[in-house]
Nucleic acid binder design. Structure first.
Lengths: 239, 239
DNA sequence: CAACATTATTGTCCAGACAACACTATCTTT
DNA sequence: AAAGATAGTGTTGTCTGGACAATAATGTTG
């Protein structure tokens, strides 16, 4: 077997990285977490939090580690989206990157720039300028995936704080899909799914009628799913 | 930059491969194209048609090339599904594989085993035995992707010959989803989409009333899609 | 404290989509 | 010509989605 391996040596000259597209929702806008690199190539450019995978490290584990080391985020559920491997995408040689994405509540995390990051910050998805490598493309692909996914999986709740209003939820969908949704129909649909717990509390200190607060019942969803329930929302018409 | 590169040399010791999951539909059953390997590791095992990517080759192009070299299939539309990279998945070192999948018409292609394949054949998805590497898992992931995809994209037609009957189409959906569908409702739904051209011909030589033949109008679909049409079928209940 | 500004909350009606359901038609085989 | 096999078709009831506007609760302002 060691002899057999000999002739394959030419293939073992590549590297791979993981890159994380972390979406958050704040101030009515969809955000993505970026780091400012302090390492070549693309020194001083904004980039996705990503880095090389270690020789004996699992891909998923590497994504978690790199995210933690560059931004301080821990225990984030990451899902693989796509791999990118154009021959010229990295100056140092052939590097394939496996992209992951996630949804988090912005308020839940304190950001700590470290490792190759000299700065970490949330950026409006709408206003992303020139990024390192092919990271703009990676974000585009991840965003498409997100748009499809929130239609049929109740993942949107991961972007909201534990107690949220129905209007918050609606704004989230409107931001991701770039559509306007009809208030009454949206509420009817969401409430009919029985996935929300009415917390019996309301907003306070707002200069208008305070809205009721709800939380997402993860367990209830799991039960219903077992019984064949399918979460599904429609996008309606474009803005 | 060359100096900078130095310290990264340790990362450039990996290889990557592409593996293709090619689905076909024949005899009322969903099939997948496998090769019998004539190379270590896993010599003589059935495996997905895949191989190492060249140093300066694009991933998508590599998938096409490898598929052609091992099975003779050409001009197949391949779509990336997922990457697999457990540290122990390949005996020769760290190897990540990028999996692609496709749907083809079984009758359209003549199979030619070559390169590392000593045999090529269609296998029932239901009856796959022990495969090389983690290829069983790859097929599982690709199959899940297919199930979701045929619901909202008219890709199922790629598995059928140019002229097919509505019953063929229904059987295809039933096979992929493992459900029973109601004949009248299925036909109504499909025909109402205006995506099929009635060829005016019928089956011949069958021992029963011959069925009308249809073809899929790709162009019509593109038009409708522009206008905001969404292809969508429901899965109904499990068998 | 009264008027105002602001957002929350709620129900009806209509149209289109979907699910359930059974009989007749056409061809080959015997 | 009878039997066997699959193709083809229509109605009805129920559910879901979409359009649509008036009233309620709070903080702010004058």
């Amino acid at each position: 077997m060691v002899q057999a391996k000999k002739s394959f040596d030419g293939f073992f000259k590549s590297a791979f990285t993981v890159d994380n597209v972390i979406f958050g929702f704040d101030d009515g806008k969809l955000k993505v977490l970026l780091i400012k690199r302090n390492e070549e190539p693309f020194n001083d450019f904004w980039a996705l939090p990503g880095y090389f995978v270690q020789q004996h490290e699992d891909l998923d584990a590497a994504a978690q580690r790199v995210l933690r080391e560059t931004t301080g985020l821990e225990n984030v559920y990451l899902e693989q989206v796509h791999s990118f491997g154009s021959p010229g995408r990295h100056d140092f040689g052939r590097v394939i990157t496996v992209a992951y994405y996630s949804l988090v509540k912005v308020a839940d995390f304190e950001l700590h720039a470290a490792s190759i990051a000299e700065e970490v910050a949330w950026h409006d998805v709408e206003e992303i300028s020139t990024l390192a490598f092919d990271h703009e493309e990676i974000i585009r692909v991840a965003l498409n995936s997100l748009k499809r996914r929130i239609r049929t999986q109740p993942v949107g709740f991961k972007l909201l704080p534990p107690a949220f209003t129905l209007t918050d939820l609606q704004h989230l969908y409107e931001a991701v899909w770039e559509v306007d949704l009809e208030k009454r129909n949206f509420r009817k649909k969401i409430l009919s799914m029985n996935l929300l717990r009415d917390l019996g509390r309301s907003q306070t200190g707002v200069a208008h009628r305070p809205a009721r607060l709800y939380s997402f019942e993860e367990n209830r969803y799991r039960e219903l799913e077992e019984e064949g329930f399918n979460f599904e929302l429609k996008e309606g018409k474009r803005k």
